[in-house]
Amino acid sequence: MNRKHFIVIFIFVAGICACNKDVLEEIFQGFQKPINFPQPVYHFETNPITKERYELGRKLFYDPILSVDNTISCGSCHIQTSAFTHHGHSVSHGIFDSLGTRNSPPIMNLAWNTSFMWDGGIVDLDLQSIAPITNHIEMGETMPNVLQKLRASSTYPVLFEKAWGSQEITSNNFLKSLSQFMVMCVSSNSKYDSVSRNLGVSFTGDEQEGYTLVKQKCTPCHQEPLFTDYSFRNNGISISGVNDLGRGLVTQIDTDKYKFKVPSLRNLTYTAPYMHDGRFFTLEAVIDHYSNQVQNTPNLDPIFKQGGQLGISLTANEKQKIIVFLKTLNDKGFLFDKRFSEQ
């Protein structure tokens, strides 16, 4: 085989790849349930995904027009390269540099979420966006004003018409467009997923041991494959000066005080800091908390006080292996998936 042949073959292969890429970009696949995931709970029947609506939702997500002074977009505190959290911020900055009291949660796999926010105060993803938009320390806007700005813009009426068949911008098509973008942000291509799907990948010895430990020590709260059971629990972190009642604020039931939603363990490497108020900067600090810093605060989950002992007993070796396993839940492709990026 001479050099000329090589070049011809190279050009041919390159041509096929280029074609493939174009074709891939052309075909919009809608929402795809990963085969190792359960059925989603989002109501796709009342908000069927289309390319135009999803793209409109993505544009809205990254547009600071949704905030009162046009400075903060959803993407400001939900940054893709941090799995849509606000990396390095215990709590996020909103308009006029105001600080909130809670850590911005990742936007990933929301189609499986049974409620939203750390306290579950919001029951439908379509109603979720109203909260940060109207919160006076997040985006500080009013819903009527947001829709007014969109109606007055030169681009949005046309995009709404393309997506929804009418230039009319309503609560329904505005909020559902945002939901379409958010439910499409599926993160399911970690090493753990490849192992689960028998894609010819296997865990290392330490990862496997860590996996076994997580199943023993971290369930039922962090249940596979989404690594959360979406319940609300008090995990024994100390009560901070803010005295955030968590779930108790929403239900106003005493036995719900200090409970927060169990977060997923996926993409942990990118979503530090941890806990509802971002108090722990490293996974080591989180695991140390569970092993020897659990406090017997009101409504502490019974899981953390078994056998007269507070917390979960873990040796240094076990902690280290758990962390090794947790890293197999990272899905780096999700962080750079162009479909989810500002265009």
Partner: peptide, 26 residues
């Protein structure tokens, strides 16, 4: 608890109901 498309008129959170709705506790 109905779908957002059933919340029109005086129940529209972007119009008449904008100040009659708790977003943080739906």
């Amino acid at each position: 608890t109905m779908d957002i498309n059933q919340r029109t008129g005086v129940l529209d959170v972007s119009a008449a109901a904008a100040d009659m709705y708790w977003s943080w506790n739906s």
